[in-house]
Amino acid sequence: MSKAFTRETDSDIDDDEDGGGLPPLPAGSKNYITPQGYARLRAELLQLIDDERPKVVEIVHWAASNGDRSENGDYIYGKKRLREIDRRIRFLTKRLEIAEVTDPTVHAGRDQVFFGATVTYAEESGTERTVTILGIDEADSAQGQVSWISPIARALLKAREGDVVKLVTPAGAQEVEVLRVEYPPATGVSSPA
Rank of each mutant, 00 (worst) to 15 (best):
M1F: 09
D15F: 02
K80E: 11
G67I: 11
T187F: 05
Q174C: 08
P24D: 02
E71I: 07
S70K: 11
D14R: 09
T120C: 06
E84Q: 15
D10Q: 10
V101K: 01
L45H: 06
S2P: 14
W62H: 13
I59S: 08
G126C: 11
L48C: 10
Q112C: 02
L22H: 04
T118G: 02
K158L: 12
E182H: 06
A159G: 08
R110E: 10
V176M: 07
Q47V: 03
A39M: 07
G126H: 08
K79G: 12
W148T: 01
V189A: 11
A173W: 12
E84S: 15
L82E: 13
R53L: 15
E17L: 09
A171T: 15
L92M: 06
N31F: 01
V106N: 04
S141T: 09
R95N: 03
D10S: 06
G19Y: 01
V164C: 07
P185W: 02
L46W: 06
F5M: 09
A108S: 07
E97S: 11
G135D: 02
G73L: 13
P170S: 12
N31M: 09
R42P: 01
N31P: 04
S11N: 04
P170Q: 15
I98Y: 06
Y121H: 10
L92Y: 06
T102I: 08
P104S: 05
D68W: 15
I98W: 03
A153D: 01
F91E: 02
A159I: 05
L41A: 10
L22K: 08
P54V: 12
R110N: 10
D50E: 13
I59W: 05
I149N: 00
D14T: 04
W148Y: 12
R160I: 02
T34M: 02
A153K: 00
I49A: 09
D86Y: 11
V60M: 13
R42W: 05
Y75V: 08
G28L: 01
G188Q: 09
P184F: 04
A159W: 00
L45N: 02
A43Y: 05
D140C: 04
D74H: 10
R83F: 12
T34I: 01
A186M: 07
P192L: 13
D51N: 14
T118W: 03
A142E: 15
A108I: 03
F114H: 04
I133Y: 00
L134M: 01
S150L: 06
G135K: 00
T9R: 07
L48P: 08
K158I: 08
I13W: 02
A99L: 05
I98R: 14
A193Q: 14
D16P: 01
I13K: 05
E100D: 12
P35C: 05
F114N: 01
I85Y: 13
E138Q: 02
A139I: 07
H107F: 09
A43L: 05
Y75W: 15
I149D: 00
T9D: 10
S147A: 07
T93I: 09
K158T: 13
I13D: 02
G109C: 03
E123L: 14
A43T: 09
R83M: 13
W62G: 08
T9P: 01
K3N: 13
L156S: 01
T127P: 03
S65Y: 11
K55R: 14
V56G: 02
G135A: 03
V176R: 01
G19L: 03
